[in-house]
Amino acid sequence: MERTIRVLVAKPGLDGHDRGAKVIARALRDAGMEVIYTGLRQTPEQIVNAAIQEDADVIAMSILSGAHNHLFPRVLELLKDKGVDDVLVIGGGVIPDDDIPGLKAAGIAEVFTPGTPTSATIDFIRNNLKRKA
C-alpha cells in the first residue's frame, strides 16, 4: 500500500493573506494527503524545523507580500544546512513571472501563480516527490 504523502503548508514572513494557503491545504487533504498547516508569520527556521519534525515529504509555501525572493531561497538554504535533500519544496502566491527562474534556480521545484487550479498542484506533488513511497 502507498504511504500517505505528508505536506507542510506554510506561510513565511509577515503576510496575512492565507485564503490561498488554506484552500490548498484543504484540497490536498481532500486528495488524500496528510496536511499540516503552520499558521501565519513563520520564519524560515520555524518552517524547516516543522518540516523535519513532521517528517514532511513536501513543503508548500504561500506568499502574497512580495517577500518571496528573500524568504523562499532561505528555506532551501536551511534545508541544505541540515542535510535535508529529499523534501519537495514548492511555492505559490502573487509572484511575478520574472522572478520564477531565480526561485527555481534556488531549488523551488515549481511556482504556482494566481488562477492555478488546485488539481495542478496536487498532480505536481504526486509526480515530483523526491522520496518514493
Binding site: 514572513g13 509577515l14 503576510d15 496575512g16 508569520r41 507580500s65
Partner: peptide, 18 residues
C-alpha cells in the same frame, strides 16, 4: 508595509524582505 502594520522597525529581523 507589513513591518509597520505589525509594529516592527525596518531593521528588525522579521522585517527582512518585507
Amino acid at each position: 508595509d507589513l513591518p509597520t502594520q505589525i509594529g516592527y522597525d525596518s531593521d528588525h529581523p522579521l522585517s527582512q524582505g518585507e
